[in-house]
Design a protein around this nucleic acid. Structure first.
Lengths: 232, 232
DNA sequence: ACCTGAACACCGTTCAAGT
DNA sequence: ACCTGAACACCGTTCAAGT
């Protein structure tokens, strides 16, 4: 109840000394393990083994597993790029940013899980937020509206990408067969005739392509909606 | 790799017989436990104890813990209401739907975590999707655009609400002191002068109010953006 | 048909002890 | 300063056995 707000980012890190392992090395190994085996694949013992160390030696560099995940999580944010809004204009920069967020998350599916578990307070996450603020400021937003715009765009990308990742994960556990999937979904949806309309589309033939179109549709809508805030 | 796509919703449930426990009873108890103690507070042993049963007797009703969570998750979707779009118009109905999604998730913070972990395939989730489709159809969307519109609105609400829940959870672990929080954030943000602008606003005095305004701002933007798809 | 307890293979984390 | 192994208190799940 009254213990202080805890996050790796609010503590000074142990200074890196030359010999032995480093926090950076550990985080890199953790990201690798997470990419290969998912969130459940990462245990302190496995990570220790990967570094040919005792499982508990990691606790010298990191207070606990959650801190380690915070550090790994921020690496994902570090992969998000943005073009300079000053040269390409804010709408282009916003689109680039949105696509790059989506791609970074898709590359590291475990980030979808962490997103719902811990706040993004790392330096990379903050840098992304800072860039987006500058972008929307340049667009003409003012005061708190800048933050609201950042929040809206970020929320859209999150909300679109997380279910995509979850869906990918569910599918990757077995061979994907469009017809079989169509039948399964038809079963789930049997009581809602309106939902059956979608059955005959090509969603199940090429889900990736459909999701890309869907992402575009929503992105354009969100950007149009934000642009509208500027003129009124 | 080649095991079939697994989800509670694609199996026939064991038919409820009169004596003994029921699946419904178990799910209710699970939701209660989740509300009280969060996702980590739910273990099969604890849930068993709550029902004064052996931990492993639950496996008669449910294949594993993930299935149980799927069932609990769908209960959250069951709490989302929508006004009839035919009487209030699609924009009003969409707003109501968005607020009610947000509220349902806020009432069950563990849903933020599940969202990034398993697809929502339960009957309640499907019913919500069906209602939203009808709503956007009435608005004038056509073909796949109906689904894209549903996806966009849903994504926005997710993406906005999940970080809100995560933030609430991080804060609820200690007494909230606006000034202390301001200082902590100032530390995290120290290298980004642009971010410091926000320091002097009232975000930290009344975060709840600010988040409500932020949600509105984005919701109006998203709906405006969707509306724009209709005229062009 | 339903429920049980023992057992297995895991966890994260603490801590005294080593170098 | 760094690393170790043993130990603790948990997990989810299986399964033979009970009623």
């Amino acid at each position: 109840m009254s213990k202080p707000f805890a996050s790796v980012w609010l503590r000074e890190p142990r200074k890196a000394t030359s010999p032995g392992r480093s926090r950076e090395e550990i985080v890199n190994a953790a990201v690798e393990l997470l990419d290969e085996e998912g969130l459940n694949g990462l245990s302190m013992r496995k990570l220790g083994a990967k570094l040919s160390a005792g499982a508990t030696s990691l606790y010298w560099y990191v207070a606990n597993k959650d801190e380690l995940l915070e550090l790994a999580y921020d690496e994902v944010w570090g992969e998000m790029t943005i073009s300079e809004p000053e040269v390409v204009g804010w709408r282009d920069a916003a689109s680039t940013q949105a696509y790059s967020m989506r791609q970074a998350m898709l590359r590291h599916p475990w980030s979808a899980d962490l997103l719902g578990r811990m706040p993004a307070l790392g330096p990379n996450a903050i840098q992304v937020a800072d860039r987006m603020r500058r972008m929307f400021k340049l667009a003409g937003f003012d005061g708190m509206d800048i933050d609201y715009a950042v929040g809206t765009l970020t929320a859209y990308v999150y909300g679109m990408t997380v279910p995509e990742i979850v869906w990918n994960a569910a599918l990757s556990e077995h061979e994907y067969d469009p017809d079989e999937m169509r039948k399964l979904v038809a079963t789930a949806v049997r009581d809602f005739p309106g939902m059956l309309e979608r059955m005959n589309t090509d969603i199940y033939q090429d889900p990736q392509a459909v999701r890309a179109v869907a992402f575009d549709f929503g992105l354009v809508s969100v950007l149009d909606g934000l642009e509208r805030r500027l003129v009124t």
